[in-house]
Design a protein around this nucleic acid. Sequence first.
DNA 1: TTGAAAGCGTTACCAG
DNA 2: CTGGTAACGCTTTCAA
Lengths: 348, 348
Amino acid sequence: MTLRHGRDYHRQVVTIADVARAAGVSPSTVSYVLSGKRPISEEVRRRVQRSIQKLGYHPNAGARALASSRSNVLAVVIPLRTDLNVPVVMQFVAAAVTEARKHDHDVLLLTKDEGPEGLRRVAASSIADALIVMDVEANEPRLPVLRALDRPVVLIGVPDETGGLTCVDLDFTAAGSACVTHLAELGHREIALIGPSPAVYKRGTSYAGRFLRGFRQAASKRKIRASSFPCPPSYDELRTRLDEVFTRHPGVTGLVVHNEAILGSLLSELSRRGKQVPQDISVLAVCPEDMAEAHALPLTSIALPTAELGGLAVEMAMRQLNGGAGQSEVRLLSPKLIDRGSTGPVVA
Amino acid sequence: MTLRHGRDYHRQVVTIADVARAAGVSPSTVSYVLSGKRPISEEVRRRVQRSIQKLGYHPNAGARALASSRSNVLAVVIPLRTDLNVPVVMQFVAAAVTEARKHDHDVLLLTKDEGPEGLRRVAASSIADALIVMDVEANEPRLPVLRALDRPVVLIGVPDETGGLTCVDLDFTAAGSACVTHLAELGHREIALIGPSPAVYKRGTSYAGRFLRGFRQAASKRKIRASSFPCPPSYDELRTRLDEVFTRHPGVTGLVVHNEAILGSLLSELSRRGKQVPQDISVLAVCPEDMAEAHALPLTSIALPTAELGGLAVEMAMRQLNGGAGQSEVRLLSPKLIDRGSTGPVVA
DNA sequence: TTGAAAGCGTTACCAG
DNA sequence: CTGGTAACGCTTTCAA
């Protein structure tokens, strides 16, 4: 290959043939040492390993992908908007990357903005072996494309009709219900939900609706007066919502907060208003555990297990990839409530 | 190919040969139509394009990478810690992804946790054509590895010794200085910097030290009394810092805030203390523009141009890739101050 | 337990 | 302006 520019960035360093030569075996043997797909004598294995080390061999990804029809890359599709809670999204991504590496895969980042054509492109060009899709809507428009993709797909979130796709998520319906139950058992009779941004509902984001449904159903079953206040992520908006809550529903003694972005503001605003938590008002959050713990007053919460969900999504994709395909699966993790002291009994 | 499991996830859909046959040309012609690397008659081009459309052809990424030594993938290395401001990191990533797509590249997400070996792996296996590295430290330990990588590398951030690597960043030294200048010209004589978390300084994160240096130098040159208060991202910590500021330095009339995470808390805490902005105290932020605008009181700020920086990083990587290599480059964007009214003259 | 060799789907050179 | 055809580096049969 010729040297084209000041620096040649296109040089293949070491090939499998180099390793084979150095170890005195055939290329196929090196390949099998690497893949473990057939028995190799200890003697040979060691020689090959040593040559690999010594030469600093790394298999060429393109060649491997071409020959094996496996790219060892996982595509993760994320939203790029800011109305979605960015830190939460990143927790999912981080978990996915970590788990993917355990399966010898890398993660390719796709944005929702690329649309269906992006999904098709990545799948059809065999850039990725499988896809993990986040920010799923109840009436998910990408479903037909995803189903036609001919690759494993795992949704983090559950659309109304899964259409045979694999999904994993927190059981938000149960979570909504669990919130009501917890507060009801503490004697609360009137509660309010500070929910995600109206934009999230409007878009039909899957988890928001499911949570609200569980919340409302449980409330009506238990004869609890429950109201819902979607809240954009800003201090001012939050303050307005609180005004609404306390003027329209002066009897509210418990707040359920399903909105990570305004947790901090909520606590400071409550304290500014002279409301003690939990004496004057109980606060129950739905959020990742670290976010529940990161406040002056640690929050009782239903954990959003981002690490577990991200990891599971990858595992499920891998299982499909390795033959466990066929059965579509919808996996809903049961909500776990952790009492950190921000909820308490109603004081008469 | 045999059908192994319930579903066959390993089928090559359409190849360049199929397209060629359908268009009545040779595979190489199709390839050239796609790459534009040699003149094609309008007639043929159209026929080929039509066949591509009709068959839904997408070039196989592995084959393409193998033949061309180009993966059309850009690796972006990000930190996965939470002490770094996650939304800010994501703004960089988002910009990089967007710009990468314009250059027909996808983005592979690497985490800093993978360490030097991860960088070597990705480069040596030709998974990525180039690397963008974020969260750069002043004494960046990955520098030797990166330089030996034999691929274009762009750092977002500037280590003390660039060692021939290409860097792009906001000129944080100038930014620190500009903050002082702005406040000084408004008549402030004693100011305080609420900085990033101590962990960020301890790690030697490049931008933190550079900003502080500019801040201090400008202050001493102008005979302004300036103090610095690193602050972990929590309401409580912030409150403690503010206590320190106002007890130790009661004469402070201006705050420079170089810490996106506590901006909201700062504003509420100031208002809780009955301090009017900017009448009683001026607040000058260093943060992305949307974050400066997202408050009840929009903040005068030095813009952290995340979108521009992320995009530039990709552009610079592409330029290196396409022959503009050779010259290493350190590109520092000049800080721009935008007055949104949160800073004002000192009232005597 | 190992080796030889046929692909995998593109690119890019060599001819025309 | 176009076609034929070696690579590219690896996996995986087929044979031994």
